[in-house]
Nucleic acid binder design. Structure first.
Lengths: 129, 129
DNA sequence: AATAACTTTGTAATCAATACAAAATTTAGG
DNA sequence: CCTAAATTTTGTATTGATTACAAAGTTATT
C-alpha cells in the first residue's frame, strides 16, 4: 500500500511533504530523529522546514501511523513499523535495535484505555559485548 | 532497609545529600521530575543545587537503584521502585500510573545483554474517560 | 477568480539537561 | 590534629531538542 493511501486511511491529507517524510521513514528502518529526517530530505527538498518535520511526526504519531520512541532521554526517534516489537538501546554505541516480543499480560485497571504500548530494553548490544 | 544501606550495597557513598534525595523518592511514589524533587527539598535544604539532583538521579539510575522513566518526551521522571511493573501515561491529564504486569517473553538476539526493561502504555486514564 | 481552509515555513523562545570549574566536604596518612 | 588528596556539591553558562507563533504558501470550494 502506498504511503498516501495509508495516510488517507487515517484521515490525514496526503500532502506532498507528508508523503515524502512518511516515505522516508518507511524506507529507512533506522529509527531516525527529526533532525536526521530533516537532514536526509533537505538536499532534495530545499524549502523543507525542520518545524514541518516535527509537525508531521506529531501528527502521524497522534493518529497512530507511526510510533514515537522515547527510549533515549535526549531526543525522540520514530518508527514507521507499528507492529508489536521491542526496542533495544545499547548504552555503549547508542544503537537502537528491534527485537521480537509478545505483548505482556498487563493488568491495566478498569477504566484505563491504552492506545499505545511500548517495550524497551537498555543494555549492551552484540557488537559492544 | 535504610536508604543509606541500599546506596552502600550498590557501591554508592551515602552522603547526606544523596540519602535525602533518595529518601524523598522512596517516600513519594509520584514519579517526580528532577525539578519537582528539587523544589520539594530546597526549602529544607537551601544550598541544594538542581545540578546535584540531576547528578544524583543519573548516578542512582546507572547503578540500578532507581528507574528513569522516559515515557514523556519533555522530561524524565524517576521511580524508587525497581520491581517489575508498567507505567501508564494519560494523554489528557498527564498523570502517570503504575500497573501490574509480567515481563513479556522477549526474543532478545544472542549476544545482547539487557540490564533494564521498561513497559509503557499511553492512553486515557479512568478519571479522564 | 475569490474566498476560505489548511499546510508549510522561519525565527524566536522555551526549558530540560549538561559542561565546567570553583567551593565545600570527606577521607586517609603522618 | 593537620595537611593533602579524593570526592561531592554548587552556580553559572551553555547546549540543543522541541515548541510557539504569525506570515507566507498551497489547495479546495463556490
Amino acid at each position: 500500500m502506498t504511503s498516501a493511501q495509508i495516510l488517507q486511511q487515517h484521515g490525514i491529507r496526503p500532502s506532498l511533504t507528508r508523503v515524502m517524510i512518511y516515505d522516508y521513514l518507511r524506507e529507512h528502518r533506522t529509527h531516525p530523529t527529526a533532525d536526521e529526517i530533516y537532514s536526509a530530505l533537505s538536499p532534495n527538498a530545499p524549502t523543507l522546514s525542520k518545524t514541518t518535520v516535527y509537525n508531521t511526526m506529531k501528527l502521524l504519531s497522534s493518529e497512530g501511523v507511526i510510533k514515537t520512541i522515547t527510549i533515549e532521554e535526549q531526543q525522540a526517534r520514530f518508527d514507521a513499523c507499528t507492529d508489536v516489537h521491542g526496542h533495544f538501546l545499547c548504552r555503549d554505541c547508542g544503537g537502537i535495535f528491534d527485537f521480537d516480543t509478545e505483548l505482556p499480560s498487563m493488568k491495566i485497571p478498569e477504566g484505563f484505555a491504552p492506545s499505545v504500548t511500548e517495550i524497551y530494553c537498555i543494555g549492551r548490544c552484540k557488537g559492544c559485548n
